[in-house]
Design a protein around this nucleic acid. Structure first.
Lengths: 219, 219
DNA sequence: ACAAAAGTGTTCCTCATACACCCATGT
DNA sequence: ACATGGGTGTATGAGGAACACTTTTGT
């Protein structure tokens, strides 16, 4: 069967207290001028993970930073007007970046708050939705929330990540206890973050644990 | 790029107190004579879900019974000696079936206990492993355990499913309470299962809920 | 001194675990 | 009667939610 295989990326970041996804404006048909997920075709000798990592690097300049995992594959025969195109979607979580590098065949690249997305090309609205659910679920039982933060961060910053991704308010006191007692989640540093209002918060680094035990549950 | 797209199925059932997976013995090269997951190429006008459902029906005779979901996609350039073949793996959970129908290009089809698998073709050992982990995790927070049971089942039978999939013993008393109090998980019937040793157990049917709240946690 | 935000103490409640015990059936 | 396994009662403890309270900074 004639077909092509592409990877598409749902790249999330937390910026200004809200969860944002990176979209590009398409420079060519089909859906020229429409917003879409960054992505591209898989090359001859490339694994899927490599293809996704390459696309992430082209769009954001990131390499070996943040987190990336396969999301799911979309293969409806009518999803692409050019013919049979299978898309393997990846989910990427990145720290708050300066501004996206719009390279390649995109007219522009821009971060959008997930609550206010434009109309998307192909089945990309569905892909973003699936990525959003995966990301929300993963914060519950993994330590991935820290990949949204810089190398050094405070507990209130980490809490802001959870609140942005889940769209809910968390009790600061209980969050503090839970996170600081969870084995291997975060490691305390000596320094404190100065300059902000109120009592300065201690700085932390990511711990080695990948799984959160006990998990952080949302209501 | 020249490539093909296939679906491969990890079909689990619980039989004789142990979790089993359906394998076929390959009738053609490559890996002729080796055990592998059932699967086949996706057709021209077929969605991925349809291709997986078709393969499931060909192998087991099942249609619209049990549960099926996409697992993940495997696309290493060297995973298939014939060339670039992407495989979209599906996870299927079925009730205890009579015997597999060995149709198509397989020499034989057979159920294997997951603890004693033969050497598998391609990267299928990895796929089974991933399916196993997904299935184990899904029993925790969904009601999918009932798809391993017949239409009518007892609570001890349901418990046996959990014990087989997780490979752990559960407290019968606590399991009973938890399962019968969980909203929408199972609905009680009037009948009881006769003929067994000890006090007869009441029969139940699947409830409408898809998610288990609160979840059933393994240690 | 006061506002603001970090961090601590404490109470209440839900739910998991463990295990003793009662119930209904076959032999 | 008694063995077997279904089903119930109940004590204990861990962890989540709520919120009052103390600490540390900037202005």
């Amino acid at each position: 069967m004639r077909c092509s295989v592409a990877v598409d990326l749902v790249i999330f970041t937390v910026h200004a207290g809200s969860l944002q996804v990176l979209l590009i404006r398409r420079g060519y048909a089909p859906f020229k001028g429409k917003w879409a997920l960054p992505g591209g075709f898989v090359r001859e000798r490339e694994t899927l993970d490599d293809a996704a990592a390459r696309e992430l690097h082209e769009e954001t300049g990131l390499r070996d930073q943040g987190h990336m995992e396969q999301l799911r594959t979309y293969g409806d025969p009518k999803r692409d007007p050019r013919g049979r195109v299978f898309s393997i979607a990846y989910l990427a979580l990145t720290p708050d970046l300066p501004m996206p590098i719009s390279g390649g065949d995109a007219e522009a690249a821009q971060w959008f708050t997930v609550e206010a997305l434009p109309v998307l090309a192909f089945d990309h609205a569905q892909i973003v939705q699936d990525g959003l659910e995966r990301a929300r679920a993963k914060l519950e039982y993994t330590t991935l929330a820290t990949t949204f933060c810089a190398a050094e961060f405070t507990i209130p910053e980490l809490r802001a990540v959870y609140e942005a991704v889940w769209g809910t308010a968390l009790d600061a006191a209980n969050f503090y206890r839970k996170v600081s007692k969870s084995e291997g989640f975060i490691v305390a540093l000596e320094d404190k973050l100065q300059g902000a209002e109120g009592r300065p918060a201690r700085l932390y680094r990511r711990g080695k644990a990948a799984l959160l035990a006990p998990p952080m549950l949302r209501r």
